[in-house]
Amino acid sequence: MKLRDIAHSRTGDKGDISNISVIAFDEKDYPLIEAAVTVERVKALFREIVHGDVVRYAIPSIGALNFVMQKALGGGVTRSLALDAHGKCLASALLDLEIPDRAA
């Protein structure tokens, strides 16, 4: 299934740093999201545009993960030649990630 089936996202950017939060719709799905959406998978997904570290912060009390991606915006949002390679576009790509189906 797609991550978007069980989660939504919020984004932000500052300079050349982008962050994407993934928030479970239902807290019972948080352990699946935590296991499936790893730093390695996020780095692999954005390997063409993220040229720095990716750090994951887990916030179980609200069923969320926050990924902070360094050197992710082509020098910064206002300096990038990309049409919109930040914010909602990156979140949409992350929410399209395939994750295991819930256990029956």
Rank of each mutant, 00 (worst) to 15 (best):
I17Q: 13
P60Q: 03
G87M: 08
F67R: 08
S21N: 10
N66D: 09
A103F: 12
V77Y: 02
L81P: 11
P100K: 06
S80V: 00
N19P: 09
G76R: 10
K43D: 11
D5V: 11
Q70I: 08
L90I: 13
M69W: 04
M69N: 02
K14C: 10
M69Y: 15
V54M: 13
G15T: 01
F46N: 05
F46E: 14
R4M: 07
P31V: 14
D13T: 12
K28F: 08
V54T: 11
I6H: 01
E34L: 15
A72E: 07
H51V: 08
E27H: 09
L97K: 00
A93H: 10
A44Y: 06
L94Q: 09
N66V: 15
I20R: 06
R10Y: 02
G75A: 10
F25K: 14
R102C: 10
R79A: 12
V50Y: 06
R56W: 14
D96S: 15
E48N: 07
K2M: 03
I99L: 06
F46K: 05
V22H: 09
G15F: 01
L90C: 09
E34P: 06
H51R: 13
L3S: 09
G15R: 00
N66P: 15
S18H: 14
G15A: 01
I23R: 13
L83G: 04
C89N: 14
L97S: 01
T78P: 01
V50W: 06
T78V: 12
L97Y: 15
S18I: 08
A103G: 13
A104K: 04
I49Y: 09
A24G: 03
M69P: 10
A7W: 15
V50I: 03
G12L: 05
P31C: 09
I99A: 08
R10W: 05
R10N: 07
K28N: 11
V39N: 13
K43Y: 09
